[in-house]
């Protein structure tokens, strides 16, 4: 089962990528058709920034991150299982961690520079 997880994960992320790409393109087209697109060039800069952001993940790999997490899971403090309320708890913990890392990326200039590229419209 463990062997199949990275493959399944890769497939799910592929689907996720297509959904994101589809939504971005759909909105872009709607804005162009309705003549509300302020700058196509800015849109391309954003897309290329996404590519630059993704390159390290392509080489280091989500698989490497997933591998580290799988390794850490062996040393877990407790086993929480997969009950429905654990899924909700996992989402809440993830959401809190996102908030915390996001906050810290505004507090420290050294991280802020890597983050502030997201801040303009």
């Amino acid at each position: 089962m463990t062997t199949y997880l990275p493959i399944l994960l890769g497939k799910l992320q592929g689907i996720f990528g297509y959904v994101v790409l589809g939504l971005v393109i759909a909105e872009w087209l709607l804005l162009v058709i309705s003549k509300k697109m302020e700058s196509n060039r800015e849109g391309w800069v954003n897309v290329f920034s996404y590519v630059l952001d993704s390159i390290p993940y392509f080489f280091l790999g989500k698989v490497m991150i997933f591998g580290t997490m799988t390794w850490l899971y062996q040393y877990r403090l407790t086993t929480l299982g997969d009950a429905w309320y654990i899924w909700i708890l996992a989402y809440l913990v993830y959401d809190f961690m996102f908030w915390l890392v996001h906050l810290l990326s505004h507090v420290f200039s050294g991280v802020s520079m890597a983050y502030t590229t997201r801040q303009k419209k």
Binding site: V20, L23, V24, E27, W28, L31, M37, E42, G43, V45, N46, V47, S49, Y50, L52, D53, S54, I55, P56, Y57, L60, I65, T68, M69, T70, L72, Y73, Y75, R76, L77, T78, T79, L80, D82, I86, A90, V93, Y94, M97, F98, V101, S105, V111, M113, A114, Y115, T117, R118, K120, K121
Partner: peptide, 29 residues
């Protein structure tokens, strides 16, 4: 616009994974 959501930094990989990488220690799959 939605493209802003995907705009990242070439160094984002240094801090973005910190959000999730240690969570399995707590027992989350």
């Amino acid at each position: 616009k939605l493209t802003v959501a995907v705009r990242g930094s070439f160094l984002g990989f240094l801090h973005i994974p910190l959000t999730i990488i240690w969570l399995p220690i707590l027992g989350f799959d």
